[in-house]
Write a protein that binds this DNA or RNA. Structure first.
Lengths: 333, 333
DNA sequence: TTGAAAGCGCTACCAT
DNA sequence: ATGGTAGCGCTTTCAA
């Protein structure tokens, strides 16, 4: 039960265990034929490497841990899935933890995961306990989504630029009156910057600032959204396009539009932040902006590979945002 | 990274490294005074045990792997979160994998997770590859949600009973005309059984059978739901209560009701399957049936504890369903 | 009570 | 190309 080791394989293949090790790790200096034989036997015997032993000799084991932030799940669900899929292709294991950052790191350390990826939010900074835990962690730590700490690779997401691009795109489609609905963050700043630089019509109510969040209750959230949207819609400067700051806002607004018989894109064009499939399979597939999950996953695993091959890498990588054009934003005249 | 080992401590304390090991692990056979001295030095030197080395010798550890099924995420998100939280309380690590079952088991084996929990669906049966992989796996495998295999603990969910109870509860609230909306599964059978046994009014259109699923597209799903619901609502035997087979159906229907200005519970009472917070924070908090996530998590970890303490356990555990009464189902006259 | 020695599974480093 | 040997840090005998 359990323990098939390289020695067992070596015995079965009639070679020595170092040869098996080399064969299994694609190391040079093994006859191709022998190698194939060993590989075959290993598979037959359903060999599973002992990560502890690997770690003991300071070898990485091609596994990546992702720490799922305490936040609404749908985006991270898709991110995890995509990560998982691409990782499979690249032969790396992905394990997910939903613990808080310190516990997660400890758990990953105990299980020999050699690369841990955190999703944090802008302005996050590490607690001293976290720093201490990170010092004990032998592998690499990467941070995506926001925040910064020493001894961690950073994958930056430029949300401001994302929204800025959305404004630009809509302007290119012929819109002059564009409103933004969402919280006050980098994203809304991108909207303001875009409106200003592209010399769009601007009225203070074009920034529809939402303050209640989903988890304060759908009810509260919806009420606020509905009321503020109505104000905007009834104003004398009704916009022709809307930029929404997240899928959450998009879901809320779509219901509201439906009730009011406002049709997309006939009555209004829409771009939403967040690259998730739910936005593309709606009645009117929505144009989205923001980093593509697919691309994020590539960058993450490229980073992992760099680490794994002991290559150097830029400590900060930027992930560019992308507009995925769908039916909700045709050109207007 | 790394550095201080028990040998260093041994040298500093003027003892041998096995003695340090014993002292650090509270093992018997070490002079109390020596032990304290060693502990103190270890602390001074900021010793951190090398998990790899430990693991290489001692195989077991308190950790549980959960395999997240390829299915829509929101329920599993809550389940994972709850599992994680209770596990923290019980000092067990939880790691989640989104790989397919065999890969997941292999990954967990590699990383010394000694207990793996699968969510499967009714009528699932293991492939021969899976059986083989399980045989190699030294830990325990548990299955929840449906399906069966040898050498696995089973946590059974009686969905039929859940819905049956819902029917019974609604009947108790005074309803005679109850309809069910959802796919044809154990759940719909529970509805039919309840209607029959409790001698409710029954019309064929009270079983609103939905066949398209969420991932065929929201659009398709919504259209079918809307059309079938309209039929039901316009029929001469309009029901006074609805049982919905999942949160998915609930979300869809709620939007439809809103558009039609049908008010809950004034115009119709509703019970939905699935114990997730989203159903409780809606405009009208919905009464739900089905197993409570909290309870599921308890049963899972109780099972884990049994396994971990080498206790015996019933190979099949049933998880009872519960009705959480909220505002959507008042008594009627 | 203590410590010398063996060994967990693996890789690195030489010899051959 | 191959394999013998050493050693990663730790626990576990077992002899002193």
């Amino acid at each position: 039960m359990g323990g098939v080791t390289i020695k067992d394989i070596a015995y079965a293949a009639g070679v020595s265990h170092p040869t098996v090790s080399k064969a299994l790790n694609n190391a040079p200096g093994v006859n191709e034929e022998t190698k194939q034989r060993i590989l075959k036997i290993a598979k037959q015997m359903n060999y599973v490497p002992n990560m502890a032993a690997k770690r003991l000799v300071n070898k990485s084991n091609r596994s990546l841990g992702f720490v799922w932030p305490k936040a609404e799940g749908i985006f991270f669900y898709h991110l995890c899935n995509a990560l998982q899929e691409e990782a499979l292709r690249r032969q790396v294991n992905v394990l997910v933890s939903m613990s808080e950052p310190i516990t997660a790191l400890k758990t990953f350390r105990e299980h020999f995961i050699d690369f841990v990826l955190y999703w944090f939010f802008p302005n996050w900074t590490p607690s001293s306990d976290f720093i201490r835990e990170r010092e004990q962690y032998p592998g690499e730590v990467a941070i995506i989504g926001g925040g910064y700490m020493d001894h961690a690779a950073i994958i930056e997401i430029d949300r401001m630029q994302s929204i800025y691009n959305a404004v630009k795109y809509l302007a290119g489609q012929g819109h002059k009156r564009i409103a933004f609905i969402g919280e006050e963050t980098d994203k809304s700043n991108g909207f303001l910057k875009g409106s200003l630089e592209l010399k769009l019509e601007y009225h203070p109510d074009y920034f529809v600032k939402i303050s209640s969040t989903y988890y304060q209750g759908i009810q509260e959230n919806r009420r606020e959204l509905e009321q503020k949207f109505n104000n905007l819609w009834q104003s004398s400067n009704r916009p022709t396009a809307l930029i929404l700051d997240s899928q959450d806002t998009a879901f809320g607004l779509i219901n509201i539009l439906r009730e009011h018989n406002i049709s997309v894109p006939k009555d209004v064009s829409i771009i939403s932040y967040d690259d998730i499939p739910e936005l593309s399979i709606y009645e009117v597939p929505l144009t989205t902006c923001g980093p593509s999950i697919k691309e994020m996953v590539q960058i993450i695993l490229d980073l992992y590979d760099c680490y794994n091959n002991n290559e150097t890498w830029d400590n900060v990588r930027k992930i560019v945002s992308k507009i995925v054009v769908r039916d909700s934003t045709p050109a207007i005249h």
